[in-house]
């Protein structure tokens, strides 16, 4: 396997008062290898966005470590290092409404960081770069002069993607980048992300809940529940041999574009089982880990 680009060690992120905190991220550890896509799925509110935001330094973390390319992300940095770091890591935000300034044009939003980084100083060059980014995300160059509030939800999300790509980063955290898009644009964006990954050896953390898309785009998938990663493994293994009951429940709820089978769908409900302090990751097959105690993991494996 290629080298570890990102190492997350026992990351915790708590919100609220210290005596009764919301443990949004509760001690998670995983690695992301250069050039791979790690899919992160899980229940709404389980801490996926917080994980992404903590990695990219939008929060001061409560505990743990994030190592990017050998360097401690949350450690002290010079202004120059910070700038470099900000260029390397980009995030596509979940909420296309809140993350774009409605009083800026699409072109201004996309080229916003060019000045800070001294890129595309020539006007014509800049216009061409903006046009090519707009086209890359399925919009056209005429859209550059329109204001953010004039776009539909899905169109705004594509502007957000173009902005994230504008500095040619090496690592992108995509927080539900396609949820707001219709399927054919989803397919375009996913193809685009894949193609860019191939060309520039990009690494992705892809947060989503559309499991068929996640399966398609990810090399490995991590399943999160209530601040913890409960299962991680190769995409195929997670799909075809899930072990943790939450993963099984999640897979049983994927709706299919087939009305007759939908009318008969039976979902496996998930009932959370508390695990005690002795819980840890257990390797159930090659690169496939499940979080639990020895006894629970054995029980889950037996009920496969």
């Amino acid at each position: 396997m290629s080298k570890k680009l990102l190492e997350i060690k026992n990351l915790t992120q708590h919100f609220g008062s210290s005596n009764n905190p919301i443990k949004a991220v509760d001690g998670i550890s995983f690695d992301i290898y250069e050039g791979e896509t790690l899919g992160l799925v899980g229940e709404s509110g389980c801490g996926k966005s917080t994980t992404g935001r903590s990695i990219i330094r939008l929060y001061d973390i409560t505990g743990g470590e994030v190592i990017f390319d050998g360097k401690d992300v949350h450690g002290k940095k010079s202004a120059k290092e910070l700038k470099q770091f900000n260029r390397e890591m980009q995030m596509i935000f979940q909420d296309p409404y809140a993350s774009l300034n409605p009083r800026m044009t699409a072109g201004e939003i996309i080229s916003e960081s060019f000045d800070i980084h001294g890129l595309y100083k020539n006007k014509k060059e800049r216009r061409e770069k903006v046009a090519s980014l707009l086209e890359a995300v399925g919009l056209n160059k005429e859209h550059a002069n329109r204001y953010a509030h004039e776009f539909s939800g899905g169109q705004r999300q594509r502007i957000g993607i173009a902005r994230a790509l504008s500095l040619n980063p090496s690592f992108i955290i995509a927080d539900e980048p396609i949820s707001a898009l219709d399927v054919s644009i989803q397919a375009q964006v996913v193809n685009l992300l894949k193609q860019l990954q191939k060309e520039h050896n990009l690494t992705y953390l892809f947060i989503a809940h559309d499991l068929s898309m996640v399966k398609y785009i990810s090399d490995r998938i991590a399943v999160m529940y209530s601040g913890k990663i409960v299962e991680i493994g190769l995409a195929d293994d997670i799909y075809h041999s899930p072990v943790h009951p939450y993963t099984k429940s999640l897979l049983s709820a994927i709706p299919l574009p087939d009305p007759l089978s939908e009318s008969r769908r039976t979902r496996i409900p998930y009932v959370h089982e508390e695990v005690d302090e002795s819980a840890s990751f257990h390797e159930v097959s090659d690169k496939h880990f499940v979080y639990g105690t020895v006894a629970t993991v054995q029980k889950w494996k037996d009920t496969e």
Binding site: V41, E43, S44, S179, L250, R267
Partner: peptide, 8 residues
């Protein structure tokens, strides 16, 4: 914006 279990 919801995961599939909550969605269901």
């Amino acid at each position: 914006a919801l995961d599939v279990t909550i969605q269901a």
